[in-house]
Simulated scan of single mutants.
Amino acid sequence: MSRVAVITGASRGIGAATAQVLAQQGFRVVVNYRSSAEEADEVVAAVSASGGQAVAIRADVTVPGDVAAMVDETIGKWGRVDVLVHNALIPYDVTSFVDLRWEQLGDKLERELRAAFLVTKAVVPDMMSRNYGRLIYLTTVLSRQPRQGMITLGTAKAAMDQFVRYVALELAPHGITANLVSPATVADTTANALLEATEIHQLGATNPMGRLVRPEEVAKSVAFLASADSAFTTGHCLEVNGGLAMN
């Protein structure tokens, strides 16, 4: 029986790599996108060319109706949702606290938690009905280790991290796991659009492994948490950072 995975923000970067890795492992994958229809179709085509099954579904993960429609379409097509990978990037501002306005922080907090809440609420009932599910959320080390200018992203992700732990606690008796994956800066131009080229180079140079993490490396870590082998792992954060931060 092929499992079904919904991957938000899957038209490029980590999401696209995750779609391809999961498809290679036999998952049927939903490539969610908000505005990059052409890129999402390219991911679906790549999965299909490799013998996998994928479909692209447009949805803004901060809009309740969009999220509900995406999950309904998935269940209508493939009967269920076994795995949620919440990877969609919610925009944020790079700024110091001195220059920070409440609207910048409040908007990022609200939209980050709204998206995590909506996608989780949408898939959990089906998972509970079958006593099986894997919930995986992409976070950042900035939620635990501050870096100059990243107060909006780090604060919002810290709130999401705690939300995931509460979800993990409540859903554990139902055979549903909820975990976080925390990559270091990824070698992906879209994810790094707010950083200067010199900053990106410096981040790679200061990593103990001397480079940025690759999207496919993050995807393979996600794939473990999406698998049946991770059944007794829940409420944890899996670091993929080359030794940059050690707990």
Rank of each mutant, 00 (worst) to 15 (best):
R111L: 15
E38F: 03
S129F: 05
R114E: 13
P183V: 00
A10D: 03
T177Q: 04
R147F: 12
T62R: 11
G133P: 01
N192C: 12
L135D: 02
L109E: 03
M1F: 08
S50L: 08
V29I: 07
R211P: 10
A158N: 08
T206G: 11
A122E: 03
L194T: 07
G106D: 10
P183E: 01
N179R: 06
W102H: 11
T139E: 01
G15I: 00
K157F: 02
I75W: 03
A49C: 13
W78F: 13
L138H: 02
A191S: 15
D41N: 15
L171M: 09
S182G: 06
A172L: 11
K108R: 13
N131L: 12
P215W: 02
E110K: 10
L89C: 11
S2P: 14
D107F: 07
S96A: 14
A10C: 12
H86D: 02
A40F: 06
L109Q: 04
D188R: 01
I151Q: 09
A168D: 01
N179H: 11
D72E: 15
S2N: 14
S96Q: 08
H86N: 12
L153G: 09
Q53S: 15
V67N: 04
G242M: 05
G235T: 01
R114P: 06
L244K: 09
G133D: 01
H236C: 14
G235I: 02
N32C: 10
A46E: 14
F232V: 08
W78C: 12
V67I: 07
P215Y: 01
V141T: 07
V186L: 07
R80S: 12
S143L: 04
I14M: 10
H201C: 09
E38P: 03
